[in-house]
Design a protein around this nucleic acid. Sequence first.
RNA 1: GGGCCCGUAGCUCAGCCCGGUAGAGCAGGCGGCUCUUAACCGCAAGGUCAGGGGUUCGAAUCCCCUCGGGCCCGCCA
Length: 508
Amino acid sequence: MDEERAEHRLERERRTKLDALRQRGVEPYPWTFPGRVPAEEVASPLRTLPPGTEPGGPERSVAGRITSIREHGRTAFLDLEDFSGRIQLLARAEAMDGPGFDELLALLDLGDLVGATGTPLVSRRGEPSIRVRTVVLLAKAIHPPPEKYHGLQDPEARLRQRYVDLLASPEARARFRARSLLVREVRAFFDGAGFYEVETPILVPVASGAAAQPFTTHSNYLDSDLQLRIALELGLKRLLVGGFERVYELGHIFRNEDLDTTHSPEFTMVEAYWAYADYTDMRHLMEELYHRLALRIAEWLPGVPAAGQAPELFEPPFATVDFVDELERRSGLHDVLAMPREELFRRARAAGATVPEDSSTGTFLDKLFDHYVLPHLARPTFVMDHPSVTTPLAKRHRSRPGRVERFELFARGYELANAYTELNDPEEQELRFREQLSQRGEEGYAFDADFVAAMRYGMPPATGVGVGIDRALMALTGTASIKDTILFLPTRSKDGGGAAGEPRGPVA
RNA sequence: GGGCCCGUAGCUCAGCCCGGUAGAGCAGGCGGCUCUUAACCGCAAGGUCAGGGGUUCGAAUCCCCUCGGGCCCGCCA
């Protein structure tokens, strides 16, 4: 490949070292390294000791990547990083077994993975260290790592080669570790609340449950086109019909739209459905969920200021505002529900939204809300009881005409949850789907006839919620771009011809 | 889809306005150094200036096109 030519010089030098190792009978890619412990497990107790302390005790073994080498004559200091942290290796020429000091320094490069064994100590300058007796190569890095101080800065390279971003950046590792823990915590939360996790299909005959452009593919077996799901909602509600009373799913959904700071074509959603409960019950569940996540995030990312502020920010109870009242208060408009479509259109345009004239009144109201209210919702706030025109899957409000029982939770400018008391009247559901179909443009929900058929068998009264995992992570950690919360994102081919000339994420 | 900006050594960046033929640091090579941590000191090396075309005696630099990326707006949760 092209890249190899550009790197010829540096790679050739590393390959030469690889050959030298093999000639000496050293296996540069051994099978395992038994007995290693995380670097932090060795370093942590040393931090309480004064500089220059050698507590003695048994030898310890660590394994990880060499990220810095500071040679100092007959002494050398090497930094070893693993997933737990970092520890310094102190190598002295006369104290080493096996291949020895000179060979180690001659054949080792930054980026190599090694195992090291020796006794713990605190260096005279106070650095937790291991006085190494042996260092064994665990994997030779042929490709040099990025610059040791600045790391990988090129945003394009960080997306295309996330593995390099991760190996060069402890901060990136910490952020994605936090994501893993967040997902684990979300599952634990719903599991603990008696919800069953299920998996519904990604490939569906008709993608509905939201207003978005689907991806389309084709099944040879079925001899028909299929779509990738754009929401989890309708599959999970079928399970309510089937008798599941508390279900959730955490998985990827796909929307054929642009990739930008807050949107990704493939993202992660958790949706939960709870029979014999309503949106007030769900509101309390969401307060509990986000409070718990905020506490955990602060533990997982101790150095990140926005994460540290999360616990106090997400202290229940959250603020509650009425969709219409708040819109009217912020905009100075009056009686928006009674406004004719044309006036709503004018107001939306005046507010800077470039909406098509034939959009629904619900779209105009959403635009006005986004413009006048959304920027003010920094603290967690439930926005309640949306106009029914905006929401085809929610149940009409039990006492307020023209409204549905719905809330959206916003914080730091992001929507963090969207919940309804679910519509379970099949006749009304069919009607709402048909209204959507009659709406022009691409804003309508697709008609899922089988879903209506399912509802005719009787769907229990229920509440449901959707939480975007990526955006939840953004809001909880203060991350500015969704690209920093998703490990592997789709990127364009650089040669424009679709040939796999450049490394790009995990390709099979 | 519209606007603005970026792409120079493996990596991080200067150089571009105002055209004269490529610069630093890190990494790598060689030599020195027994507590360093962006270690340090010395020497030598390292380039398809994203790609293509144009203007010019001469283009990394000015103009056009293409590719890739970033930010803002639009669309979209």
